[in-house]
Design a protein around this nucleic acid. Structure first.
Lengths: 141, 141, 141, 141
DNA sequence: GTGGTCTAGACCACG
DNA sequence: GTGGTCTAGACCACA
């Protein structure tokens, strides 16, 4: 399997989205793991590092890391850092993923040329996601 | 004829998303307008109707409608209803839109077959949206 | 020095006026800003503080603050408070304002001596305001 | 006493004020009476006439007239119209009133030249009214 | 019947 | 402690 040399995830916050900050961090880690961007053993950036990158309160980052730990996705080790746990596996290969990424990029460029703004694109995405075959693990949390 | 005889939008709520309910309603109206699903003069479902459809408090729906009004997208008229204002225009044609919709549906099916779950798909979408050419009117609100 | 070290506005409510409470709060902030009583960076009293001062429900105060935010006059910051935004400027100097205030006080005393009650005075004000040269930015919102 | 040949009041509505429509009508009649613009015996415009002048529902005008009648200010006579009752008296003479009106107009022009907008002017009025000697009949309703 | 205001009170996100 | 969301439910203004 093609690993990936301990990539450091970089967080982004979209204050306009209405999604709570701590939740945006959690989502981004979940997605990175599910895409294989973060692999078992990879380290999450230290809280102080995140605070430097994006303007956010350390408590909020802590909260996100705590949630991820409760979820069984990562493990915080005193004095060392927070690491992605074994047993989580990317759902696809990096190769297949980058293909899909490229295709999607092309589609999105076409959508933009057709005059769609972010709202419009997200509407199409939401529709497609709720229309097609359902996600497998969409059950209760 | 390709107009749309006063279509009634139907709302959905995703409690797992972390997005506040009122905000999900606002987004859905914005998207429907931007896709031409809702046209100027169309009526939003009465608050009490929305309350019946999805389980939600009238105040929350009201809040969403008020926000949309502040945004200049709709207008609440006492005793009559809430209507999409003139001057809002879909960003593309229904024909082009359904093409894009179909293409996206195909892509999403491929992504699912490659093993991606909703989180993974959304991660690719988010990446593509933040990578490609920016949306035109993304400025401050 | 004629600045004003973060003056705290004090709200009043007139239940007889027929004007919704939230709207009275909004108006008072707008006026205070327009008179230079509130300056950029000044903090509005916390919602719970207003609730203590005047007997009113927190939601109603919150609604007023949200409206002011939508209007671009203030900004609510999570966990810190609600602040007057930069870029809003008083329309006149405190000196000129207090002159005008004194002149108006004198006129009002004369009006009262002539037998006018509040209704009568407001009638004259309303007439004068709708008769003279129009306000500059009275356009649609 | 200088009467006034059955002047017909002309109503105005300000939808931006937040004051309910029926209440704006009531206030305008009260003020006109208090200023001697409407005298005992004067007729209020018929509901249909008001509906023509301003865009409003007949029910709303009825409601206002009903309130004024309950207040003892006017009397609706079946098939004839609604009339200002005897016993209500203007608080001042037309002559004194027009003097005050002129003075106020001058003051307001100065205020506008000083850069005040409607909000600012109303703020000064509100302050002056709550600062000076109190109105005589401000008791409970 | 439809939108609008208000109260009471719970709980969450953030600093 | 401070702002934000949500529910439950009453009552008002308007067509």
């Amino acid at each position: 399997m093609e690993t990936n040399g301990g990539a450091l995830i970089r967080f982004r916050l979209d204050p306009r989205s209405g999604v709570p900050a701590y939740r945006q961090l959690v989502d981004q880690v979940r997605q990175a793991v599910s895409l294989g961007i973060l692999c078992p053993g990879d380290k999450l950036p230290p809280v102080r590092e995140v605070v430097r990158q994006i303007t956010i309160n350390p408590n909020t980052v802590h909260r996100a890391y705590r949630d991820l730990e409760a979820e069984g996705l990562v493990r915080g080790e005193q004095g060392r850092g927070t690491f992605v746990l074994d047993g989580v596996s990317p759902s696809t290969t990096p190769k297949r993923r980058s293909e899909l990424q490229r295709e999607l990029g092309a589609w999105m460029a076409r959508a933009r040329r057709a005059g769609l703004d972010d709202d419009g694109i997200l509407a199409l995405v939401a529709t497609a996601m709720n229309t097609g075959p359902p996600d497998n693990d969409k059950g209760e949390r």
